[in-house]
């Protein structure tokens, strides 16, 4: 079972954390990292008690738990960088939808297990490549430290999701049909993972994060290999991409996630839980 991660006491010195010029971009970028984990964790946790088999219930709860742990680390650092006294909980529970910076992919409804596991696979493949780069190459020691912690868990998420995609893709006709439908549904939302903007450019320029274009090629390779083994038809790379989540323009689904997630903090402001 994963342990709940909290901010460590001994944090490495990190010049970026106090860099006023970089602050807006770094805060934004850290929110994107944290919000992806939070919203995907939320969607994954919706399965709790409703999984198709007991082992899956446990695995899904465990994955959600890992993602909530990552959220605490990323949003905790975001609050620190922002320097206005907001902590991870303030950011998670007291921002409205337009201030959330997760990609649209993670906020789509959980659908059936085909959608849930295909989404996890597509996101994990990206997440794993990104965290690997961050852990090894990021010039920000704090970012590298969080990435290294999260990477251990995400390596396992990717292994498990890839394995399930292969098994269900190459399982029965029905499981194949559902997995292909899930892939076709989700594919137009994967482009956003690699669509950089000014925030990304500033963070890449500072040496904190990798160029998303370079990551895209590796992602295509990894994903096509697994999909081929799963006997699934990979949609055209570079097709239409739904964008906007990273800039705070979301689907209608996010508002309902937040209405549910933030209910207690909104209804009872200032209470301690």
């Amino acid at each position: 079972m994963s342990e709940v991660e909290t901010n460590t006491v001994a944090t490495p010195d990190d010049p970026f954390v106090a860099d006023a010029d970089l602050r807006p971009a770094l805060f934004e970028w850290l929110c994107r990292m944290g919000d992806n984990a939070l919203i995907l964790g939320h969607r994954t946790s919706e399965w709790c008690g409703h999984g198709p088999v007991l082992e899956e219930d446990i695995a899904l709860a465990n994955t959600a738990l890992d993602l909530i742990g990552h959220t605490q680390m990323w949003l905790g650092l975001a609050g620190e960088v922002e320097g206005e006294g907001r902590n991870a909980d303030n950011l998670a529970y007291l921002r409205d939808a337009m201030k959330f910076k997760n990609v649209l992919l993670v906020e789509l409804p959980k659908g059936d297990m085909a959608v849930t596991m295909m989404r996890e696979f597509l996101f994990d493949a990206y997440h794993h490549l990104l965290l690997t780069w961050l852990a090894e190459n990021s010039k920000s020691p704090r970012v590298a430290e969080i990435a290294a912690k999260a990477l251990k868990e995400v390596s396992y998420h990717l292994d498990r999701a890839s394995d399930i995609v292969v098994r269900l893709g190459d399982g029965t006709q029905e499981s194949h049909r559902r997995m292909q439908a899930a892939l076709d549904l989700l594919w137009p939302y994967t482009g956003e993972l690699f669509a950089g903007d000014d925030v990304d450019a500033a963070i890449v320029e500072a040496g904190i994060a990798p160029d998303l274009g370079a990551l895209h090629a590796d992602w295509n390779g990894l994903v096509s290999e697994v999909l081929e083994e799963a006997t699934l038809q990979m949609p055209e790379p570079g097709g239409y991409a739904h964008l906007g989540g990273k800039q705070g323009r979301h689907t209608e689904h996010l508002g309902f996630i937040l209405a549910e997630m933030q209910f207690l903090q909104r209804a009872y402001p200032g209470a301690s839980w």
Partner: peptide, 29 residues
């Protein structure tokens, strides 16, 4: 798992959410 799972998506802090997830996962175990 169901009555407790009912509050996972509405847990009031990230820590409470993580603890509740871990607990409900224990029950499944």
């Amino acid at each position: 798992q169901l009555p407790e799972g009912n509050w996972i998506t509405r847990a009031p802090t990230l820590e409470r959410k993580a603890i509740l997830l871990a607990k409900v996962q224990d029950e499944a175990g």
